[in-house]
Computed example of a mutant assay.
Amino acid sequence: MIGARLENLRNWLERTGNRERWGLPAIPDGPVNARMLRRTLAQAIAERPGGLLAAKVALKHISVATTEGYAARPGGSQRLFLAEVEEAAAEHHVRLTVEAFHDFQEDRLPAGPGARSLIEAFALVDAELKEAARTDPKVLTDDTHLESLLRKQAQTLHVGAANYCWFRDPAKALCLRLAGTPNASKPLVGMCDSARCPQATHHPCHRPVWTGQAAGITVFLESPRVPVGERKRLLPERERALRVVAEIDAAMCEGSA
C-alpha cells in the first residue's frame, strides 16, 4: 500500500514540476519503500545548513546518532561538536595561563603546593620573552609570541572549581594515587585535594571560592541543629579553607614586598 502511494507521489512531483520548484532530487526509477523515502529525505535535509538537527526533528528520532546514520554521516555532528569543545577549551586554557603569567609579572604570585614549579616555569618564559624583546621590541606589546611560549604549559592545565591543576607528571597526581590509577592520562579533577597535591596552585581568582566555603561552614557550625559528629568533620574543612586563603594572601604580599 505504501509503495503505491510513493509511486503516485513520484509521478505527481514530476508531472506538476514541484520537484524542481522545491529543489528536491529526482526519485530514481524502480520500486520504492518507506525506508528508502526516509533515508533520501534525511539526506536531502541534512545537506542544508543546520539540516542534521532539522532532519532529527522531522523524522522524530530520539538521538541525533540515528539521524546521522540515515543521512550517511555517522559521527558527524557529535565528532564536530567534540572537536569544537576541545578547541575552545584549549584556547581558554591558553588565556588562563596568560592571565596567570601576567599576575606573576605584576608580583601576584600563585600559592599552593605546586606554586614553586609554576613560578620557575614562568620565570623561564619571562627570561625568554625579555631576550626576544631585545631583537624585536614589538613582542612586549604583542601577546601572540607570549601565547606561543605558554602554549605547552597551557596544555597541562586542568581547571578545578577552586584551583588550577598543572598535570605534568601522572605519578605526582594525588587524585590518581587515591583512585589507584597512577598511569591515567588525565587527572580526576572532581577528586582533587588542591591543598595537598604537588601539581595544584591557587590564584587570586580562587580566593572568593575558599572564603565562601569558610563562611558557609561557619554558618553550619553556628547552628545548634548540627550534630556533634558533623561539627567535628566540618572544623578541619574550615581550617583548610582558611589556611588556603591565608596562603593566597601571603603569596600576594610576598610578591609585592
Score class of each variant (00 low, 15 high):
5 R>W: 14
6 L>M: 12
7 E>I: 10
10 R>T: 05
10 R>H: 07
11 N>D: 12
11 N>E: 14
12 W>F: 13
15 R>D: 14
23 G>V: 06
24 L>C: 11
24 L>T: 08
27 I>D: 14
29 D>K: 11
32 V>F: 01
36 M>A: 13
37 L>P: 03
37 L>M: 09
38 R>K: 15
43 Q>W: 10
43 Q>R: 15
44 A>V: 13
45 I>M: 12
47 E>S: 12
48 R>D: 11
50 G>C: 07
53 L>Y: 14
55 A>M: 06
56 K>N: 09
60 K>W: 07
63 S>D: 11
65 A>R: 14
68 E>K: 11
71 A>F: 02
73 R>S: 15
80 L>E: 14
80 L>S: 10
81 F>S: 14
81 F>C: 09
82 L>M: 07
84 E>S: 11
85 V>L: 06
90 A>N: 09
90 A>W: 07
91 E>A: 09
92 H>I: 11
94 V>G: 08
98 V>D: 09
99 E>Y: 07
101 F>V: 00
103 D>C: 04
104 F>R: 02
104 F>N: 03
105 Q>T: 07
106 E>S: 08
106 E>C: 03
108 R>L: 02
109 L>T: 02
110 P>C: 05
113 P>L: 05
115 A>W: 01
116 R>L: 00
117 S>I: 01
119 I>H: 06
119 I>S: 06
120 E>M: 14
124 L>R: 15
124 L>G: 08
125 V>D: 03
126 D>G: 01
126 D>K: 10
127 A>Y: 15
127 A>E: 15
128 E>A: 15
128 E>Y: 05
129 L>M: 13
130 K>A: 11
133 A>M: 09
135 T>P: 03
136 D>G: 01
136 D>C: 04
145 H>M: 08
149 L>S: 05
151 R>N: 02
152 K>E: 13
153 Q>C: 13
153 Q>F: 13
154 A>N: 11
157 L>S: 13
159 V>M: 03
159 V>N: 10
160 G>H: 00
163 N>V: 00
164 Y>I: 11
166 W>E: 09
167 F>I: 01
170 P>S: 00
171 A>D: 05
172 K>I: 00
172 K>M: 00
172 K>F: 01
173 A>V: 06
173 A>M: 05
173 A>E: 05
176 L>R: 03
180 G>N: 00
181 T>A: 11
181 T>H: 13
182 P>L: 09
182 P>R: 08
188 L>R: 14
189 V>G: 06
191 M>H: 02
193 D>E: 12
199 Q>A: 01
202 H>Q: 12
203 H>T: 06
203 H>Q: 15
203 H>C: 11
205 C>M: 14
207 R>N: 02
207 R>F: 00
209 V>R: 12
209 V>F: 14
211 T>M: 12
212 G>I: 04
212 G>M: 04
215 A>D: 11
216 G>S: 08
217 I>D: 03
218 T>Q: 15
219 V>S: 09
221 L>N: 03
221 L>S: 10
223 S>I: 04
224 P>V: 06
224 P>L: 05
228 V>T: 08
228 V>C: 00
228 V>W: 09
230 E>P: 00
233 R>H: 08
234 L>K: 14
235 L>K: 06
236 P>M: 11
239 E>A: 15
240 R>S: 05
241 A>M: 04
241 A>P: 05
247 E>A: 10
249 D>F: 03
252 M>F: 09
255 G>L: 07
255 G>V: 02
